[in-house]
Design a protein around this nucleic acid. Structure first.
Lengths: 170, 170
DNA sequence: AAATGTTATCTTGAATTCAAGTTAATCATG
DNA sequence: CATGATTAACTTGAATTCAAGATAACATTT
């Protein structure tokens, strides 16, 4: 009886629905609401550290995708927007900004004249390496609020859900 | 040896980091990456059903917040943008759109002349009631891909994480 | 090789959001 | 009640994103 009263923002939403629509089983809103809310709050926390390095979240994401691809840290725009789950138009804009900041360079592909490959510049690489350390430390700090066993269990369940969501149909 | 090869998008990211930066413990990226990705995919699935009712995700969110507040389905803009985690400027814009569509009406507050209360119109109420049923059915369908026990476990872990994230500091 | 279809990227215009600043009303304190 | 601080809502301008369409290069088939 020590967890009945306080609750979080999602508990209050569920209570409201129980009062207003007791005929509906809104229990899925509990999981899905908490998941969305966690994602929103997490993204705020991560952005805070990215900003310390003069980066926005999406800037870090693009640079990190190039970095982890391995030398020569080079990918085609299509590979980038596919893994980052954004449209081609969004990627065009992102690359323009990153290029103007000197963190990426572009060069024509030998394989395909339609494609201009994107490569991390020296500055971009160095900046990402620094930001990456801060980012990983931040993620460790955030998760340290939970017992390691809970984090493991959370990841297992999320992997199940992600597999279901990545499967066509459902 | 049946789960080593396939993996999901996040597994591939973790493998890349392990190859490129074996010195870093990037395990938090597993949980946090999957969480973000689940949230993005979930939001796409939910939007698909909202669209069947001519609604966008944020439109449903605002109408639902008013609906579950209970009769007379009326809240101040400040209450709305606080629970929906958006800025006041965003809410001004949202309310203008919803008003132009006839789903909300506005009236001056008796209590506070600065505040113009927002109330669901008859149309807005009826639309939300219909969309709500489709939305809840959709959420049930999505989660039915997982054993009930997994969903329960997932929610428990997410509640822990959410509590940590809602706590000031960390 | 010519025709057809596909792919990679970019362009355009609109939608959504936020940060910062504005205005007006309310509250608190002397 | 006067002053200053706070609050509620809105305005403005910029950033980010997407959908839809355009363009050019590639692939396949005849």
């Amino acid at each position: 009886m020590s967890d009945a009263l306080p609750g979080d923002a999602v508990d209050r939403i569920l209570e409201q629905w129980a009062r207003e629509r007791p005929d509906l089983d809104v229990s899925p809103m509990g999981v899905i609401g908490r998941l969305s809310r966690c994602a929103a709050l997490l993204s705020q926390r991560l952005d805070g550290v990215f900003a310390e390095y003069g980066l926005s979240g999406w800037e870090f994401d693009v640079l990190a995708t190039l970095r982890r691809a391995g030398a020569p840290y080079q990918l085609a725009p299509t590979e980038l927007f596919s893994s980052l789950m954004v449209t081609s138009g969004t990627m065009t804009h992102r690359l323009k900004v990153l290029e103007s900041k000197g963190w990426i360079v572009r060069e024509a592909s030998n394989q395909d004249a339609r494609s201009t490959l994107v490569r991390l510049s020296g500055d971009g690489f160095a900046l990402l390496e620094r930001a990456l350390e801060g980012h990983v430390a931040n993620e460790h700090a955030i998760l340290s609020a939970l017992p390691a066993r809970s984090v493991d269990a959370l990841e297992k369940r999320l992997a199940e859900l992600l597999a279901a969501l990545e499967t066509p149909r459902g």
